[in-house]
Design a protein around this nucleic acid. Sequence first.
RNA 1: GGAGAGAUGGCUGAGCGGUCAAAAGCAGCAGACUGUAAAUCUGCCGGGCCUUGCCCUACGAAGGUUCGAAUCCUUCUCUCUCCA
Length: 398
Amino acid sequence: MPAAMNLDEQVEYLAKGSVDLIDRKDLRAKLARGKPLTVKVGFDPTAPDLHLGHTVVIRKMKHFQQLGHRVIFVIGDFTGMIGDPTGKKTTRPALTHEEIEENAHTYERQVFKILDPKKTEVRFNNEWLGALGSSGMIKLAAKYTLARMLEREDFRKRFDSHQPISIHELLYPLAQAYDSVALKADAELGGTDQLFNLLVGRDLMREYGLEPQVVLTTPLLEGLDGVEKMSKSLGNYIGITEDPQSIFGKIMSISDELMWKYYLLCTDLTPAEIETWKNRPMEAKKHLARFIITEFHGADAALAADEEFRRVFSERQAPSEVDEKTLPASKEPQFLTKIIVAAGLAPTNKEAQRLVAQGGVLIDEARVDDPKQTIDSRKGKTYLLKVGKRRFARVNFV
RNA sequence: GGAGAGAUGGCUGAGCGGUCAAAAGCAGCAGACUGUAAAUCUGCCGGGCCUUGCCCUACGAAGGUUCGAAUCCUUCUCUCUCCA
């Protein structure tokens, strides 16, 4: 990271990969004072499993940190009671204090793989929002108008199409904005879906006689499918705490096209450096996978994952470590499909049948194509099963 | 308070009383191919079964009409719209 950058270089460094920066001049002016900025990012307390999509904004926090600024990680234990209305259909259950505490710790463990713990503050917004009380809340609500709220695209659309908007949803942007007031934030970061909320922060700060914060948004990262944004509920995510082998495989499974976006948002390489990889996509993808695994699990794990990938997919050998399954022996031969299910290689018998019929099952390296295949399952028998490209198990009959 | 619209498989979204385990797209899975779990192409895509044909579930819930209902009727639940 850049030790001594001049003002403009700093602005550029911080702006890299951002979508909105409001406004660049403000940021420059704040930086010019030479004092560390207070930079805040809010996180919902409900989803403690961070994935690569979350790391985009966390990486941006890191950039601020590297330049010596004060980064505050705000856990929205108060705003969590409302739930950000963005595209949400179901209200989530209220969490207990213990659960929130626990989630916060889980966050920290993951976030500090990227951020420097010594330079990161963690705060809970119930601290100041809870203290407001209902009368304080009303005073806060008095600072903003419905017309301005309806500028938010999400609200606007719902309003125009006569979809319901609950009153409490209008409070969410206000509450979040009040975080900035309470913390006297110089800048707030968030995904592009946060733009409106972040801008309300600016307005509200003016109302409270504070200098408005700089707003910086980062792009939403598409998930493995390359279509939907990465999210746990869609199952198209790469979790920070996932095992290295899965991360490696999942990275390799993204489309070449999508890979470049991951490069831009999930590594610290400059666009010029990324360009040098363009003519060898496969190597580039492996390099990306190694980079990401190194960050979360260390370089050794990354190398091992790479080796294993080569072994299993390029050379189509069995992995170095195969799950051992012990199944009860029987004198009569048993249907292979049942064994596959019993070994946890397929969820249902029907699915196992399909896999066999489609030629996706190998016993001891030999393909099976008869769904009615039975196998000798007397005591002491052992088989190496391969189902699909990446499910292996050694079954032992006892 | 009154009038009306709608609820379909992970999602989006078709669906004439029988030929609907339910079109199509997306996502997912498998195979082929390959530079990768990329792209492309092909196939699959509710479950059970001593396993290929039969049986169970399934179209918001519960009843009913019918030889037969996702499709018709009644009630209920939920969502939305309009009028007041």
